[in-house]
Design a protein around this nucleic acid. Structure first.
Length: 419
RNA sequence: GUGGCUGUAGCUCAGUUGGCAGAGUACUUGAUUGUGGCUCAAGUUGUCGUGGGUUCAAGUCCCAUCAGCCACCCCA
């Protein structure tokens, strides 16, 4: 009998009433990226699993428990991509993009996959947009990447979004900081929560992220990363800020920003939105100066960000932006009488060839039903094709907002509406 | 992966101590022979998330399961 299928957990359909907004938002991102000189790169949705295991960090949650891993028929091990940076860097290396000279400015958009428990603003298949700038360690590039995302969010009209930045330093300053953290925490080890006791061993930085009250107390007194930056890292971070100010980008410094992926160095940043509950990160990124080499390429510095479209749309909804938009035809055609249809299909096609959006419903016959449908479709005009019109060659064109109508020839209709 | 709340018409939801499955909205038609929006009238729409159990009788009680939401976790 009838088998019913349901969508996989943590996924969703984008229906026509929402796809309009998706197109708008995606288009705006493309535009903004282009204004900053970025070109699109498209990579596969799955990659060798170890690409992510090695780059993202095998102690990270993403790799430990959130990857959609599978074997193909020849037993190769792949993973649905959980994030966008590693594939882009893989492509950069594989296509020897360093030989193109200069800075490679790349952007991407598309679905990512993580096997996580779904919640509002958190899905198993979710859509990200992001950029990567590979080939320069200049602090201007850090500022450029941050400014790109900032500009995009501003253009959408979002107001309640904060930018927080931090510097994680280079390998040397990270090492000395980790050491200082370990020393600080050693006498308090028994007070840490279970997760933190593991973090202390594996990745002390992440201790700063903990929300358990007793751990938070300890974090308050803990050494601050920024105090452990060496001269070079400090001036880099300061220059980034100088350029951000020069571009009018508003930010605050948050020394606790850590970022979840292991490859980050130097500049790290997050865009936060305070009404999405615990899913408050709408985007973020940072510098990854050793990732290219780690993936097997000629050493090259890079920086990038990623943002989630779903959380963006939730933010837009929250701020009542772009809620009323949807597709609507220019002309809804009302056909009266079976014999008129043949003439009407010809007319409709002439209009479409001129770039006019035409809609017609063959299952509605009465004038009333068709006018009603025209109204519901939010058409700009109704075009009436009946016996009288066909005989005279003048068709009734009616504006649906004002209710004015006049009889026009096909040529006049096209000059009125065509583009 | 852990804990909690919820699941009834396309949508939003009501449904009393277990006793005929409801409202609003949407949709279709009519009032108006070829003119929409407002109004009025009539009509259509249900595996009560799914599977089992208790009972004369289950939307209601019990168990399991699936899904959404919330918190944790993590992050987009």
């Amino acid at each position: 009998m009838a088998v019913t299928y349901s969508i996989p957990r943590g996924t969703y359909d984008i229906l026509p009433d929402k796809s309009f907004i998706w197109q708008y938002v995606q288009g705006l991102f493309r535009e903004t990226a282009a204004e900053f000189g970025y070109s699109e790169i498209v990579t596969p949705i799955f990659e060798n699993a170890d690409l992510f295991e090695r780059s993202v960090g095998d102690t990270s949650d993403i790799v430990e428990k959130e990857m959609y891993k599978f074997h193909d028929k020849k037993d190769r091990v792949f993973a649905l991509r959980p994030e966008g940076t590693a594939p882009v860097v893989r492509s950069y290396v594989e296509n020897s993009m360093h030989t193109l000279g200069g800075i490679q400015r790349l952007y991407y958009m598309g679905p990512m996959f993580r096997y996580d428990r779904p919640q509002k603003g958190r899905y198993r298949q979710f859509y990200q947009y992001g950029v990567e700038a590979i080939g320069s360690n200049h602090p201007y590039i850090d500022a450029e990447v941050i400014a790109l995302q900032y500009t995009f969010l501003k253009k959408l009209g979002l107001k309640n979004i904060q930018l927080e930045i931090n510097s994680l330093g280079n390998k040397a300053s990270t090492d000395s900081y980790n050491k200082a953290l370990a020393e600080y925490y050693a006498p308090h080890a028994d007070k840490l929560c279970y997760d933190c006791s593991i973090r202390l061993e594996k990745n002390p930085r992440r201790l700063l992220d903990c929300k358990v009250p007793t751990c938070k107390e300890l974090v308050a007194e803990a050494p601050v990363m920024l105090d452990y930056l060496d001269e070079e890292c400090r001036t880099h971070f300061e220059s980034v800020q100088t350029y951000l100010k020069g571009m009018g980008v508003e930010y605050t410094i948050n020394p606790r920003i850590v970022r979840g992926l292991d490859y980050y160095t130097h500049t790290a940043f997050e865009f936060l939105n305070n009404y999405l509950g615990s899913q408050n990160a709408v985007g973020g990124g940072g510098r990854y100066n050793s990732l290219v080499e780690q993936i097997g390429g000629k050493d090259a510095p890079g920086i990038g960000f990623a943002g989630g479209f779903e959380r963006l749309l939730l933010s837009l909804e929250e701020e009542n932006l772009f809620m009323g938009n949807s597709f609507h035809p220019d002309v809804y055609v009302a056909v009266l009488g079976e014999e008129s249809l043949l003439k009407a299909v010809h007319l409709m096609q002439q209009l479409r060839l001129k770039g006019i959006k035409v809609e017609y419903d063959p299952d509605k016959n009465s004038m009333k039903a068709q006018m009603k449908a025209a109204d519901k479709a939010h058409a700009t005009y109704a075009l009436i094709v009946g016996e009288n019109e066909i005989n005279s060659g003048l068709y009734v064109l009616k504006t649906l907002t004002e209710g004015k109508q006049e009889s026009l020839s096909l040529e006049d209709i096209i000059t009125r509406l065509g583009r």
